[in-house]
Every structure is written in C-alpha cells, then in structure tokens.
Amino acid sequence: MERRDVIIIGGGPAGLSAARRLAELGVAATVLERDQQAGGVPRHCGHLGFGWQSHRRLWTGPRFAEQLRADSTALDVRTGHTVLGIDGNVLRVQNQHGINEMAANRIILATGTRETPRAPRFVGGSRPRGVTTTGALQANVYLQNFKPFACPVIIGSEWVSFSAILTCRHAGIRPVAMIEAKDRISAPRPGDLISKLIYGVPVWTRTKLTAIAGQPQVEAVEIERHGKRERIACDGVIFTGEWVPEAALLVNRPKVTLAGNVHGDLKTSGACWREGRAIAEQIARGSA
C-alpha cells in the first residue's frame, strides 16, 4: 500500500494552498482531486473577484484557478482520483485503473461545499428542464458555453445569488426577479439596490416559491408574495446558496482536519486559500 505523510482530499483553493505550504515547509503531501482538473469551484466562476487575498491580484475565477494550478506544478496533485471512503488512516481511492488503498499519517479534508438543490427544499410542482443551481449554471455558461434558459427566477439572496446575476448577464440571460423568503436580503445591503439599479433585476423579499410549473421546460413559478399567490412567467429557476458541506466522507467520523468550505460559514475562495495555508503550517509544526 502506498503511504504518504499527508493526503489532502480536494484540489480547490484550500487543498492546493495547503499542499503548497506543506511543500515549502518540507512536508510531502499528495492532493487527490476527483475531477479531471484541479482548481475547484473558481474554475466556473467567470466573473472578477478572485485572487486578492492570495496573490494581490483581481482575477476571474478561471484565471485564479489557473494560477493555483501553476503554483502546484511541482506538487503531487493527482486528478481523476476519487476517495471512496476513509477507514482510520487508510483511504480507498478510485482512479482510471481501478481501486487502491493509500495510507496517510495526516488527512486534510478540503472537499468544499455545494448549494441546496430543489429536492431537499421540497419545492413542489412538475419536473421540467431549466431547474438548476448557480454552480451548475456557471458550469453550463462558462465551461460548456450553453444557455439553459433566457428568463429565469433566482431563488435566494446570498452573495452567490448575485454571482448568479453576473453569470446570467455574461450569457445574455435576463432574470425576471430575485426571490427571498425573508424580510430582507441575505447578502449585505445595498446588494438589492445594485441588483435593481445596475442589473435591472427586481428583488422581492417576503416572497416564497411554492411550486414550479411547465413541461418539458419551466413555464412559470407560483409564489406567495405578501400573503397573495401569484404566477410568474419564466423559463428557468436558479436555486442559489443554502450551502451544504460536501462531507459524505465524514459519515464514519474519521480523524481528519477540515479545511476550506467543507466546514463553517461560507468563506470566499481567498479565505479558503488562507485557511489551507494556516492548517499546513500547524501540521508542519506538529501542533494541529
């Protein structure tokens, strides 16, 4: 069985920065990334806002991810490697050749987070095409050059919801409205004013999505707004935010160190990068 000092699961900003810092401090680490390319979520965030905390630059997500990969060329980053399970210090790892076991003295879990899709929100109605999350929309727009709809509604008003607006603008998609069940938007003000004034997307607070209609494509959503039911024509629904850690590997409570968005409140990619670095320093000192 292959043995490594440190294995880092997940090759996004937190995992890659931890690996790089460990290498600088003389600790050999291996990054296992399940996708075919490292870089994590920033790979499909095509708008500006990345790189400042780590590189003192203002980049798009893909440019930032490219830099993270460039910073890692001398490191042992294995893409197309899926960790299936962790038992003590042994990992079951799948790659194109099959399944192997690897052992590590320390395991860092940096598997990130995902948005809550429609199903666990129990939004009723039909099951048409055009229901997505910000992450899947960004992968469609920036990586596949595909426009899944022309005039969707955006559900939620976190930071990422505004990222959904930017993604839509990039693709020539015109959101009908941003819908928020709470009294005020989740992102700091004046997000709603920016949304409305700069991007022309009205923000409706105290508005609840109750059902999705249409077949085979979304034709409308049913909402409850100020206690009244309304039907809003649209051809897509973007569920944004309500982040859930990508923590399936924690089911058997293995002894791992968490880095990045797999734990805690949602952090920016820069904050994840810094946290990965800090955890690497703790591990190198033997203090984590």
Partner: peptide, 13 residues
C-alpha cells in the same frame, strides 16, 4: 445528493 450541482452541465453536454 447534489442533484447535478457538480455534474449536470457536463452530463447534459
């Protein structure tokens, strides 16, 4: 569990 958050764009392509 992710209902296509990670893969739907690629599978649909």
């Amino acid at each position: 569990r992710c209902q296509g958050f990670n893969c739907s764009a690629h599978v649909e392509a």
